[in-house]
Design a protein around this nucleic acid. Structure first.
Lengths: 190, 190
DNA sequence: GTCTATAATAAGATAGAC
DNA sequence: GTCTATCTTATTATAGAC
């Protein structure tokens, strides 16, 4: 990726996060890059292409991150803890991109939309399998696998909504709180 | 509220939910109502006025709902359970409005934005006070009150993202799952 | 690879007739 | 209370010079 292409991407992430995809114009982006709006089209075919490339890259990195974090163990509880922490960390470290990836899917063409939704489904399935396995092995209480997976994922994802990098708690501290909260919730339904 | 004013509101909720506020035009709304776009302005001063009135009404109803549900008990755990169920039920019953209320704040003028954010803060404070009180009384484990309150609220709120009214589980079943999950998470950090 | 210029279209909102 | 007509402005995107 060329220098200007990366700049356009990064400026777009800032603006899409702050104002939203539809409220951000190509002019806004060009302004932020210090170039003319026509120049954007040398690097990206369209505004939608720019959005898609951000979302696709983010989802791929997110999935890679999860796979790496699971490789270290084969114990269900430890894997769930690792998965939760990986998910939280990624969402807080790359707050703006993940926020966009969760809120701007409606800006995509239907083919691109399908691709991102599929990537997300595959990612979710990892968590669903862990909940299922934990339930069967008696490590977690029996429960509705899908609802619980959505609960866990959206819980951590939501962190990206309010997280402030210079705030009171570090990313690892927040990840630890979520980890404890979720494992307790999974182990027994009160 | 006149019949047409209510129709405009309801059509807008549908469209803002499906396409987003910025992606929805006054023409789209007028189309959905079977009137001309100029006629919208007889009922609402601007597109932003329409958004604000939806968000304000939704937040007020949400707060009323919570207050009613808390009146029945003065036991911390029971109150938290009631609060969680109230929150979940409202978000699933009025899925589209609450989704908009959580995703379209950027469409508001800064004065209107301030008003909605303040309403939300007051709402959150009820949950924070319950977590605090539960911690002091030893009903819940000690924990970070703010992080936990965000966790609980966004967890339930997120339900509005994926919930399908004709899906496998009823609203009360989902509320019960969340209730159990959250109380377990609050009682002990694993 | 970036520029100026412009096309083509759609937006939010208003004026004034009925 | 709704209409037609219109204003003003902004939008995405393209053409073609440099």
């Amino acid at each position: 990726m060329s220098h200007m292409k990366a700049t356009i991407r990064s400026v777009s992430v800032e603006l899409f996060f702050k104002k939203g995809y539809f409220a951000t114009s190509i002019s806004d982006i060009a302004n932020g890059c210090g170039i003319q709006k026509a120049s954007i089209y040398h690097h990206y075919a369209s505004k939608e292409d720019l959005l898609f490339s951000i979302l696709k890259g983010t989802m791929d990195d997110l999935t890679d991150c999860l796979k790496t974090s699971l490789a270290g163990s084969d114990d269900v509880e430890q894997q769930m803890r690792a998965a939760v922490r990986s998910h939280v960390r990624f969402h807080l470290e790359r707050q703006k991109e993940t926020f966009i990836a969760n809120s701007e899917l409606r800006g995509l063409t239907s083919e691109h939309h399908k691709i991102i939704v599929q990537k997300r489904s595959e990612y979710e399935r990892v968590f669903q399998n862990l909940i299922q396995e934990g339930g069967e092995k008696g490590v977690f209480a029996e429960g509705d696998v899908k609802i619980l997976s959505y609960a866990i994922l959206t819980l951590c994802t939501a962190g990206a909504t309010w997280f402030k990098p210079d705030g009171r708690l570090s990313i690892d501290e927040i990840a630890a709180i979520y980890d404890g909260f979720i494992i307790s919730g999974l182990k027994q339904s009160a």
